[in-house]
Design a protein around this nucleic acid. Structure first.
Length: 489
DNA sequence: AAAAAAC
């Protein structure tokens, strides 16, 4: 059963006024104000929760969706008196026949996943309230907002009506591919607003305004298009932030181009999606959205059951490269695809060079590569032409390649501001590249120093998810046993 | 520092 619980949010509205007035929502309000930081809980009164309506009948489960974690404990909090009924089939959503056909024929979906069943009615039911939606990695969030955007577009109106902002170029392209596939029969037009080849940037000046009905892209390009009046918002109905916690992190808001979005009033629906929302971000987003519904998952419930995590304790850098070379790269084809995450571009290049020098076929992606190379490397990996990909955190979030069974944290993710703090969110997103939609997967965390060990322990306790130790870093048998235990061999 | 992107 979907566990739907009335949370503490309901009890602690102590008559505080919302920070933003009901009628006028100017995103610029109080963005910089450190002192007034009302929590999400104080911002609104949770008046009613339709527990029964939101419950999902597990008996009607059709298993296109493999083993969606049974205990994915998504909790829902709704505001106002709009009743929402969880959608057990896509027919429940009053979608156009064209859209339904896209879901069944192109996407080969049979029924909504849990997050889809709960969130889609919230997205599609008037008065189209804002939504903060947290759900596990690989549980089908993209479908939620892509379907949300497609279903709200008026096909007769050739103007931008839905906008989706993503943290990276790669994710924008991926989401666009999903949208075009799903919307294939609808005739809805779309445009990807991401940086194009570094040279001929003149094109954007002379180009006509965007008429596409759905626009997906990265902050910088979207900002530029808007300030050049190439992207109008007059007919906008939905604004989606994919990986919303990352997009709206305070650092971003203050120092980056996203600040632009806070300068004009928002009258349309805002949807925030991510697998992670840390407390700081949660408190902050309550200023961005208002009178919103929310779906969230406790951090202890966020680890994927189907994913086995291990730590490998090894003496030095040489041993790290040795393990990748002798244990990982020798596994052969039947292990599926592998992503090796590193913390810096330099680390990526170094590992890449040492492996290529030894004659191994690995590819590497990071933000310093030119755009054509980035596209090419992602495409080759998605086409299954390459098995092993070294990556910085460019691909830590959202990257969806179902054949990835093994993720390696060659470096453990730490916070930049404080190197002795793990970056919990990045860790969760990285490992979520394996085990998409309930598939089995394994994670190897390389532990080289005492500091690494401390970071690892903190991660384990934060997610309350123990990470088994590979007994001996040099033993081939130990890795095989681990992979067997994970169900991969 | 990963990333975004370039007026």
């Amino acid at each position: 059963m979907a566990e739907v619980t009335e949370t503490t949010a309901a009890s602690s509205s102590e008559g505080k006024k919302p920070a933003v007035p009901e009628t006028k929502r100017l995103w610029g309000d109080e963005v910089d104000d450190e002192e007034v930081q009302p929590s999400a809980t104080e911002e609104k009164a949770v008046s009613e929760l339709n527990v029964d309506a939101l419950a999902i009948d597990e008996n009607t489960k059709v298993n296109k969706f493999l083993d969606e974690p049974e205990d994915s404990r998504i909790q829902a909090v709704t505001t106002g008196d709009t009743p929402y009924t969880s959608a057990s089939t896509f027919e429940d959503l009053n979608l156009s026949p064209e859209l339904l056909k896209g879901l069944y024929v192109e996407m080969k979906f049979q029924k909504p996943s849990k997050i889809q069943a709960i969130s889609l009615p919230m997205i599609m039911t008037p008065p189209y309230k804002d939504l903060i939606a947290q759900a596990h990695n690989g549980s089908g969030k993209t479908t939620c907002f892509v379907l949300g955007m497609l279903s709200r577009v008026d096909p007769q109106l050739q103007r931008p009506q839905a906008l989706c902002i993503c943290p990276t170029r790669e994710l924008s392209i991926q989401n666009m591919e999903v949208l075009r596939k799903m919307g294939k029969y609808t005739g809805i037009s779309s445009e990807c607003a991401v940086p194009i080849e570094s040279r001929n940037n003149d094109r954007s000046r002379s180009r006509p305004p965007i008429s596409a009905q759905v626009v997906i892209g990265t902050p910088g390009t979207i900002k530029r298009l808007m300030s050049q009046k190439k992207l109008g918002v007059t007919d906008m109905k939905v604004l989606v932030f994919d990986e919303a916690d990352h997009m709206l992190a305070k650092v971003h808001i203050q120092h980056e181009s996203l600040v632009y979005f806070f300068l004009f009033p928002i009258w349309f629906q805002v949807l925030l999606f991510s697998a992670t929302f840390d407390e700081t971000v949660k408190n902050f987003v309550s200023k961005v959205v208002k009178d919103y519904n929310q779906l969230f998952v406790k951090k202890e419930d966020l680890s994927l059951e189907s994913l086995k995590q291990y730590k490998v304790i090894l003496p030095d850098e040489l041993a790290k490269i040795g393990v990748v070379k002798d244990r990982i790269l020798e596994l052969g084809e039947n292990i599926g695809q592998i992503i090796i995450f590193v913390n810096t571009k330099r680390s990526a290049s170094m590992l890449h060079t040492s492996l290529v020098d030894l004659g191994y076929e690995v590819t590497t992606i990071h933000g310093a590569l030119n755009l054509e190379d980035r596209d090419k490397i992602v495409k080759e990996f998605k086409d299954g032409l390459t098995q092993v990909l070294i990556s910085t955190d460019v691909l830590a979030r959202g990257f969806d390649q179902q054949q990835v069974n093994l993720v390696i944290n060659y470096d453990l993710p730490v916070k930049y501001e404080n190197q002795s703090e793990p970056h919990y969110e990045v860790y969760l997103h990285r490992i979520g590249r394996a085990g998409r939609f309930g598939r089995k997967g394994a994670v190897f965390n390389f532990i080289m120093t005492d500091h690494d060990l401390m970071i690892m322990r903190k991660i384990e306790s934060y997610f309350n998810s123990p990470v088994a130790e590979i007994p001996s870093w040099g033993s081939e048998e130990d890795y095989k046993a681990a992979l067997k235990e994970a169900g991969l061999l």
